[in-house]
Design a protein around this nucleic acid. Structure first.
Lengths: 109, 109
DNA sequence: AACATATAGTTACTTTATGTAACTTTTTTA
DNA sequence: TAAAAAAGTTACATAAAGTAACTATATGTT
């Protein structure tokens, strides 16, 4: 009946990262801005959920949505400074995975 | 229709961390071994899900379950070496949260 | 002895989250 | 003129998580 002695900032960060797809969307955008359908196809996420996640990430100030008035309009998603600051975390996860995930732990989707 | 050019080891790591509760369970155990009900009460996770997560984490070699034959028996959960190696990731998440999560971003549960 | 309480779960049921597939607009290419 | 792509949205189906009650074993309480 404690319900967290955890630091609320840390909890918030974990809440972001442990929501399905969020970390992968951020990771995907680290390599540069991308369009909706590129992210969708690269990750295999459904459009319904991607749309929802992008809205949340935008409202958190992690992702920026930019309408580029070409013809036809192009919409680019990119990381804000706050979003880009996830990079060291991603690097650590990469390090960990190289050290600790063996062939036997990788299940084909 | 790409469905991931991502490194499968990285994907696996993300799959572990972005499953609800998993990161918090690992974080909780970094401070030392704990019993089922301590983890449950500290995190506010339901027993049903905690039980399931601990089994998965055990099978991944991240968590160790130890039956201590006192009377009554005590069951202690702790991190294996593999589990403990998540610490640098957690530290980076802590750093990030200190820099980027403001009071306005913390919603009371 | 009888009763309440704790631990470590499990089971049945409900609610929430995610996936699937079809549809909408606008614009482009064949 | 017709088909296709981009950026979504909508309605519906399935999977994951939460809730609450229950089990078995053991301990302390009256």
């Amino acid at each position: 009946m404690d319900q967290s002695i955890l630091c609320p900032r840390f909890e918030k960060a974990i809440a972001i990262l442990s929501q399905r797809w969020t970390a992968l969307i951020i990771y995907q955008l680290i390599s540069g801005s991308q369009r909706f359908c590129s992210i969708r196809d690269a990750l295999g996420i459904s459009g319904r959920v991607l749309s929802e996640r992008l809205k949340v990430l935008e409202s958190e100030g992690i992702v920026k949505r930019e309408v580029i008035p070409e013809t036809p309009v192009r919409i680019e998603y990119s990381l804000t400074e706050k979003g880009a600051s996830f990079e060291p975390i991603m690097k650590e996860i990469e390090n960990w995975s190289q050290s600790w995930v063996g062939k036997e732990n990788i299940e084909a989707q």
